[in-house]
Design a protein around this nucleic acid. Structure first.
Lengths: 335, 335
DNA sequence: CTGAAAGCGCTAACAG
DNA sequence: CTGTTAGCGCTTTCAG
């Protein structure tokens, strides 16, 4: 890596002349500019990013904190974040909280030492369960903006990107009701999460609106994802007249579908299944699972746009919450 | 964010005194150290990372380039990389090449401006198909170390982390042969990749070793992952006496299993299926898929260890290739 | 048109 | 024990 100083020496001009020439300043003669640029090209000069960051007091880097990268939803949001950031000339530093409050806290503090210009994050499960928010406010007080997506904290004053989780779950349940399903199982692995609560509310709302309460919603809460298959099978044995399943997370819809097949439910004739997800699960199921599709990459892209706007305008009041569209894809597991 | 200078002013001492006190230098009196540390604590002083990077000429940051984050294998490697890096006090800047040579090139050049101390990467499909390696050597010439994993370029002199792909595929095929399978389909979606070539070789080796060539291996090459289901089904119609399937990538084993069930193959009685993967696919299949398990997080961790060793010893000769163990998990789709 | 100098935040050699 | 100074690589104001 060659520096301005070294270029200056080779050219017998001053450092500042080289700097100005490279930036095409009108203070410098055409001839000098050309000479400088040629040599710079030859030595493949690139301004040192760290020095620029120090000088400009901005790193053009975004800190991203993901609760669980093995969840396809978050992987796809990250995909969206990276793509949009690159387009806007920003890099991303990625930290994984692995659902731990302490790891989330560490990551936030670590990167708040001047490493990043702002954060994009989804809150760790432990943090939401224990309702911790002080660490967010400390960062915000340092004038480092945060954009939260998916799992957000309403009490924290920052930008947010979400889908209308209540409405999505409501519509999905409504679909089952309209198909004439009477005994619907709600598989809930997201009990402690903000999104989970909204989705459950949406499901119950749809059921409560049915005439003379003829429809039943049986909620299966699963706290440990590893138990999910066992728990679902238990329910299928207990309620052998199930005719609908709605899963509000990324995985359990697929598991429920497989279990239902194993128990010889005819799908979708006798039993409908609908899950949350984006499209990748399609590779894994027959028949193809009907889903609420979240457009996770759009969520990531929107978060980047909000954050960069905030960084570049330095406008720290008036927070925005952007709602990204979802879509309902009825495929082969609904009527 | 408070700076040394500001602390110094408040304390009426010089900047260097504050710096030394904070670092517990023996040059400074106990009393001053205490005074300084208390104030620093109070104002939550943290040394500016960018300034440190500039001074020390090292960023404590690793550039990670991933071809496809939506592939669970890479997500899990990233998980391993992040975890190990954090443990070692490094951050990671993540770029996604999305299998594109240009994006890979851009990411490499972008971060080689002093943003990172080294790279961990797996090569983009396009790069491997077109056999491009110059861009790696340019980075290496700048004395920035690279560790490649999974998809590696043998011609490039750098550290590498792989599994014994040949052997893994060989053993998996051998398993089917030993079960008495005679007509085995090899599903190959990795035709252009270094790992794919090794695995295919391993499969054929196992077949060629059988007595009087009684076993047949039918290779199905699929270049576009979206066609995979269609192509597999086509083969199942064409060869209705298939009795074994080996898939050398992460996804197609599951797809093949689902298709086989749809075509009423009795599994594993009439047909065995074995795939590459790590454990997540288990959530998605009944019966549970037998797999070659790659321990992807170990691959990531090993890569970090190699890279940091290289960074901190500044020893640029003698490259290492580490082979990470795999395991064969025979579950419910093999005898 | 070109150069000297200051400063971003920090460390460390050297002077006092 | 404390302070001054130079320097990491760069931009930018100001002087020439």
């Amino acid at each position: 890596m060659i520096t301005l100083k070294e270029l200056a020496e080779k050219l017998n001009v001053s450092i500042s002349t080289v700097s100005k020439a490279l930036n095409g300043s009108s203070e410098i003669s055409e001839k000098t500019i050309k000479r400088v640029k040629e040599l710079a090209e030859m030595y493949n000069y690139k301004p040192n990013k760290v020095a620029l960051s120090l000088k400009n007091n901005q790193t053009k880097t975004i800190g991203v904190i993901i609760p669980n990268i093995l969840n396809h939803f978050f992987a796809k949001v990250l995909y969206g974040i990276e793509k949009e950031s690159a387009k806007m000339g920003y890099s991303i530093i990625t930290c994984l909280s692995n659902e731990s409050y302490n790891k989330e806290l560490d990551s936030l503090q670590l990167l708040a030492d001047g490493s990043v210009d702002g954060f994009i994050m989804s809150i760790a499960e432990e943090t939401q369960r224990e309702k911790k928010t002080d660490h967010f406010n400390r960062i915000l007080n340092q004038k480092i903006p945060i954009v939260m997506f998916d799992r957000v904290a309403d009490e924290v004053e920052c930008d947010k990107v979400v889908i209308d989780d209540f409405d999505a779950a409501y519509k999905a349940t409504k679909q089952l009701v309209n198909e004439g399903r009477k005994r619907i199982m709600l598989v809930n692995c997201l009990e402690d999460l903000s999104v989970g609560k909204l989705r459950v509310k949406g499901c119950f709302q749809a059921i409560n609106e049915t005439e003379n309460f003829s429809n039943e919603l049986i909620e299966l809460k699963v706290s440990n994802i590893d138990d999910i298959e066992k728990e679902i099978e238990k329910m299928m044995k207990k309620y052998n007249d199930l005719d609908g399943i709605i899963s509000i997370d990324n995985i359990s819809g697929v598991v429920a579908l497989n279990s239902a097949k194993k128990h010889n439910f005819s799908i979708p004739k006798a039993l409908s299944v609908i899950g949350f997800s984006d499209d990748n699960v399609l590779h894994y199921t027959t028949p193809k699972l009907s889903t609420i599709t979240q457009h996770s990459d759009d969520i990531g892209a929107k978060a980047v746009q909000l954050l960069i706007k905030r960084i570049e305008t330095k406008e720290y009041l008036k927070n925005e919450t952007k709602t990204v569209n979802y879509s309902i894809n009825l495929r082969e597991t609904t009527l």
